[in-house]
């Protein structure tokens, strides 16, 4: 039994079938990178794992327990599976500290002082202690994204989903976010990330999945996918990435 098992997942938006039978397994402490052209279903897959989207066919199991379909306590699931979005989605009317402590105090019923102490420790770790009382729009994009990661980490998830979290950032702010991810990977956080940062994927991934046409088209260790891809569409994709100077 694997940590996360995704079996034959189909997701349709009306007539548009975005996921057409995804199969994927993730082990604990693995970092899985989803790569592929825009619209191939990377983000949708992540949103399905978190229960933000309903799936029409197939199933997803976490620790052997089914987390899709009717009767699943999504609020409970989401305590274990955190997600960070491309557009940060911090709560603009709350300070950084309040953003981080909201879910622990309200969902886990953690006492306020404990939640604050924990949030401050997290902020210290991402180097933003001094911004605890700032509002999100007073931070740079990179800082906002680090806060968003801290907000997800405050729930101590078993699995962290990262949805193109550097795509909306200025190039010079990307590295501060990637450094944080590197650190999390070293500490053994299980992560699935949809990304266009091929160099980063190559460096930290335990497994790389090339998604195309709503399925996992090719998967394998990063060296194999990036240096010796077996399938034609994967080769094309990587060739265009190299041409664009992104690998």
């Amino acid at each position: 039994m694997s940590f996360l098992e995704i079996r034959n997942v189909h997701k349709r938006f009306g007539a548009n079938e975005v996921l057409r039978g995804i199969n994927l397994t993730v082990e604990e402490h693995q970092v899985v990178c989803l790569i592929g052209p825009s619209g191939c279903g990377k983000s949708t897959l992540l949103r399905c794992i978190n229960g933000l989207e309903e799936i029409q066919e197939g199933e997803i199991r976490l620790h052997g327990d089914r987390i899709t379909g009717p009767g699943v306590d999504l609020n409970a699931l989401r305590r274990d599976v955190g997600i960070v979005f491309q557009s940060f989605n911090l709560f603009p009317h709350m300070t950084v500290l309040q953003n981080i402590t909201l879910a622990p105090t309200q969902v886990l019923r953690m006492p306020e002082p404990e939640a604050r102490a924990k949030a401050l420790a997290l902020l210290k770790r991402i180097g933003l202690e001094h911004k605890a009382q700032a509002y999100p729009d007073q931070l740079s994009g990179g800082q906002q994204q680090r806060v968003a990661i801290a907000r997800a980490l405050a729930m101590e998830p078993m699995l962290l989903l990262l949805d193109e979290i550097t795509s909306a950032l200025d190039p010079e702010l990307v590295s501060e976010v990637l450094n944080l991810l590197r650190e999390l990977a070293r500490e053994g956080m299980t992560m699935i990330l949809a990304t266009h940062e091929m160099g980063f994927a190559r460096e930290v991934a335990s497994k790389v999945c090339f998604m195309y046409g709503g399925v996992v088209h090719e998967e394998g260790p990063p060296e194999q996918i990036f240096s010796n891809p077996q399938r034609e569409r994967t080769q094309q994709f990587l060739a265009s990435i190299i041409e664009a100077g992104r690998l």
Binding site: R47, N50, L52, L74, N75, A76, R78, R79, G82, I83, F85, S87, N89, L90, F91, L102, A103, Q106, V107, R151, A152, M155
Partner: peptide, 21 residues
Amino acid sequence: PSQWAAARSLGLSYGQTLRFV
């Protein structure tokens, strides 16, 4: 809707999302 998604993904219920976010 992204505010809803962010709040719900943290485990907040529908009511909590309305109330706090």
